[in-house]
């Protein structure tokens, strides 16, 4: 019996790059690591790294400068935030509610915990 990995590797790569953009590690209009650097670092086939980067190109998060490499697009951070806000319900709320139901926590209990989460911040 194994632990199922949740996501294909190319998606994990694009999410890692997005995380780096959100955290400010990769700033707008600056170059991101090359396909080779990414694939060497994570020990993955360059085709997999390329697939992860291509996804970000399609979404307008990074763009290609011919002969130079990949750069963070202006407004990339907002675009990622918007995308993740749209996915927030599916990615977090559904699992949160289903776990709460499994444990016999009702709506009121859950709302209280959410309030506590905000207060602790």
């Amino acid at each position: 019996m194994g632990f199922a990995e949740e996501k294909p590797i190319y998606l994990q790569i694009s999410e890692k790059i997005e995380d780096a953009i959100l955290s400010g590690a990769f700033e707008e209009n600056t170059q991101i690591p090359s396909t080779t650097e990414i694939s060497v670092n994570y020990k993955i086939n360059p085709a997999t790294a390329l697939k992860g980067i291509s996804l970000l190109v399609e979404e307008g998060i990074v763009y290609k400068k011919r002969g130079l490499g990949m750069f963070v697009a202006p407004g990339a951070k907002e675009r990622i935030e918007k995308k993740r806000r749209n996915n927030f319900y599916d990615s977090y709320v559904r699992t949160l509610v289903s776990e709460a139901k499994k444990l016999g926590l009702n709506k009121k209990d859950l709302l209280e915990q959410i309030e506590r989460g905000f207060d602790d911040e």
């Binding site: 396909t35 080779t36 694939s39 060497v40 020990k43 086939n45 360059p46």
Partner: peptide, 10 residues
């Protein structure tokens, strides 16, 4: 593995 990927890339 790193050297392999680097070699393959170039």
């Amino acid at each position: 593995y790193r050297e392999l990927i680097e070699n393959f890339s170039s």
